[in-house]
Amino acid sequence: MKIKLNGEDLELNDGAVLTDICAKLEIDSKGVAFAIDCDVIPRDEWASTKLADGTEVMMIRAACGG
């Protein structure tokens, strides 16, 4: 299936959950956060938050800044 990650297509296995995005992108989950439909998803719910085809996910990560 395909989700929209920050507006870009990302192919994931059917039944994927939020933590699978980190695994797919090979990104450490430290410094990362997710929102779906403007709802911030608590970290302890990532592994149980199932994604569907077309789900729009916002994902941010740490950046340098003052």
Binding site: L5, N6, M59, I60, R61, A62, A63, C64, G65, G66
Partner: peptide, 10 residues
């Protein structure tokens, strides 16, 4: 130390 956030791009 301050840190910022940015949208990840692939």
């Amino acid at each position: 130390v301050t840190v910022a956030m940015k949208r990840i791009s692939l």
